[in-house]
Amino acid sequence: MQLIPCPWCGDREEAEFHYGGQAHVAYPDDPHGLSDAQWAQFVFFRDNPKGPFAERWMHAAGCRRWFNAVRDTATHDLLAVYRTGQQPPQSIAPSTGQDQAQVATA
């Protein structure tokens, strides 16, 4: 079983974690100003790269805290973990594989 390094608890088995999908997708700054297409991007569209991907995990059977990780979706290698509110390390550029959405992201 894959070990995931929780930033608070250290290496734990994958089964202890809950997956949260793409990280750094912020609620729109100006929700009233969004078009239908922009809302669709926020609600339904997420990056889906083959390669490094910044994503959220929660240590559900441990400290129950959320954190971020950069994981390679082709190899499953966890390249970095970092706490909520932080940005991924500069040395690891998560690829989006896509054009960025027309939605404010933080």
Binding site: G21, A40, Q41, F44, F45, R46, D47, N48, P49, K50, T73, G97, Q98, D99, A101
Partner: peptide, 18 residues
């Protein structure tokens, strides 16, 4: 499963997760 990767080559973003 690789539809997002291919569509990305034409600048298209899909509402798909693999």
């Amino acid at each position: 499963g690789h539809s997002s990767v291919l569509a990305g080559m034409a600048g298209l973003r899909l509402p798909i997760q693999s």
